[in-house]
Design a protein around this nucleic acid. Structure first.
Length: 508
DNA sequence: AATCGGGGCAGCAAGTCGAC
DNA sequence: GTCGACTTGCTGCCCCGATT
């Protein structure tokens, strides 16, 4: 250990992934400083595999914190770690699994309470016969269950465990694969009340399934790592990235910054192919800028919002040191939000400081989220998102036509992204539909700005509610409509709309 | 305060897809 | 072809905020 000094104590504290602490002895010899007494226990307890890579972070308090533990095949270990401890909700250990309690006594079921999070569901036809899908309450799912598809273990009163697929997609949360087997084994029937109790969760997992930001490492291999970077193949990393990557249709980039040099930002474009997800354009800039050497270690910490923080370790295993000038402000800072939007806050305090920054700035300026903000003039490059938004809205506001039309701003009121994608329907203004649209269910043609036609089902529900349903989802996806987008539906024929889309510039 | 319109959500049902 | 897993269109109901 390179950074220990003589004044420091000869004791250190190791903190494991679950927060459990282990006291070890620091032995300083001519050959270096070692972790000794207590290390073996720590090693055994965590079942650290041979060839694992342990990256040690020393805290200011003097404690030593081995925060990252990976095998050479990082995904396997990362998954193992998560399985056992980090995500007890997803794949808990035997003693800490989610327990399902079944009771045939309705009173008992109703009076059931627990210090653990739980929800009750009375089995319906659809749960135990028809579809064998169990929808989990939205609030519970959002609060306690994984934010992406995951495996969940259900343990029945007999103690038998069943793995079911928990699907969290498009605002729907449900148990699918494996649920059928559970139903059969437990002989569940319509009317049974089940209480699903989440047992023995790790505290921090309540607010987040991941105790700490996920990490992974890559070794620099000439002509492989230096050309592009394969992001994720592992289950665990997929869990982590899936949401962001799914949502990044409009924003296929991420930010790479070095721990030592957070002032330097590389915008890297993300490519998703059948072979995996890659970081490509911009990645080479990062490699060049930091002059990465063969066999150096790059430890990535995923901070969310498509932001990776990278620590570069020399072949010796120690962190690289730099002698850079004092901090500068970012030339361009861009962050993605979970709903797929992004924001750019431009700071023009300094000029390009490195090739990377130049690239970053160039990217932001040149492409500036082209799908969202039409760049019809150079002056737009200097506009803030707010300005662009305002301009966009003005354009939409100023729309006029000889044909009947109505405007709708997705998510203008309480409508969320979820409504756009999950509900698969668009409610229409009552007055408009009463006046111009059929009084019964009908098929309506929507034509997008590029002239492509879509058929959607128009529903006139008891003359009360009017909305687009079947086919609307396809229109939404095809035209990449998102929260905040403004659409103007211009009735150009008896059952035909020309749709003008004003995609909004995203931020929070 | 009452009414109304619209958004949110969950249940139901039927369809699709893939493995065997 | 069958079965299981999963998707998605449709519906009803509740709730909330705006309007009267």
């Amino acid at each position: 250990m390179k950074h220990t000094s003589n004044e420091e104590s000869d004791r250190a504290i190791l903190e494991g992934p679950t927060g459990s602490q282990w006291h070890v002895k620091l032995c300083k010899t001519e050959k270096g400083t070692f972790l000794q007494d207590g290390w073996q226990d720590f090693f055994k307890f965590l079942l650290i595999p041979i060839k694992a890579v342990i990256i040690v972070e020393k805290e200011h308090s003097g404690t030593v914190k081995p925060v990252f533990i990976y095998e050479t095949g990082i995904e396997a270990v990362a998954e193992k770690r998560i399985k056992r401890e980090d995500i007890p909700m997803l794949i808990p250990s035997d003693s800490e699994s989610q327990e399902k309690t079944i009771t045939e006594d309705k009173d008992a079921a109703e009076s059931f309470s627990s210090i653990h999070p739980y929800f009750k569901i009375q089995m319906a036809h659809v749960h135990v016969i028809l579809s064998f899908v169990l929808h989990t309450p939205r609030e519970f799912s959002k609060k306690y269950l994984p934010s992406a598809d995951a495996k969940i273990i259900l343990r029945n009163p007999s103690g038998n465990c069943f793995t079911v697929n928990f699907i969290n997609r498009k605002g729907r949360h449900y148990f699918a694969g494996g649920w059928r087997a559970f139903v059969r084994e437990a002989q569940l029937k319509k009317g049974d009340i089940c209480v699903f109790k989440l047992k023995a969760m790790v505290k921090s997992a309540i607010s987040s399934p991941f105790r700490s930001p996920p990490h992974f490492f890559k070794v620099v291999i000439p002509n492989v790592t230096t050309q592009h970077l394969v992001l994720s193949h592992s289950l665990s990393l997929k869990c982590v990235f899936s949401f962001d990557l799914k949502q990044s249709d409009l924003f296929d980039f991420c930010i790479i910054s070095s721990k030592k040099l957070t002032l330097h930002v590389a915008l890297t474009w993300v490519y998703r192919t059948e072979k995996g997800t890659f970081l490509q354009d911009g990645w080479q800039d990062f490699v060049r800028y930091y002059s990465l050497w063969n066999n150096e270690f790059l430890v990535f910490r995923y901070d969310g919002n498509m932001h990776f923080n990278v620590v570069i370790l020399h072949k010796s295993g120690c962190e690289r040191e730099y002698a850079f000038p004092s901090e500068k402000r970012l030339v361009g800072r861009l962050s993605r939000k979970r709903d797929g939007s992004a924001e750019i806050s431009t700071a023009r305090a300094c000029q390009s400081y490195s090739g990377i920054e130049a690239v970053a700035e160039k990217r932001i300026k040149r492409e500036d989220i082209p799908m969202l903000i039409p760049s019809d003039s150079e002056s737009q490059e200097n506009m803030t998102i707010e300005d662009k938004d305002a301009k966009l809205k003005m354009s939409a506001e100023s729309f006029t036509s000889i044909h009947p039309y109505f405007k709708t701003e997705l998510a203008r009121k309480k409508m969320t992204q979820m409504k756009v994608y999950r509900g698969f329907m668009l409610h229409l203004p009552r007055e408009f539909s009463k006046k111009y649209l059929p009084s019964t269910n009908a098929e309506i043609i929507l034509r997008n700005p590029s002239g492509k036609y879509f058929t959607v089902n128009f529903r006139n529900n008891k003359g009360n509610r009017h909305y687009f349903s079947g086919g609307w989802s396809a229109f939404v996806r095809e035209n990449k409509l998102s929260k905040g987008s403004i659409c103007i539906f211009e009735l150009v024929g008896k059952s035909e709309f020309s749709v003008h889309i004003f995609p909004v510039a995203h931020r929070n």
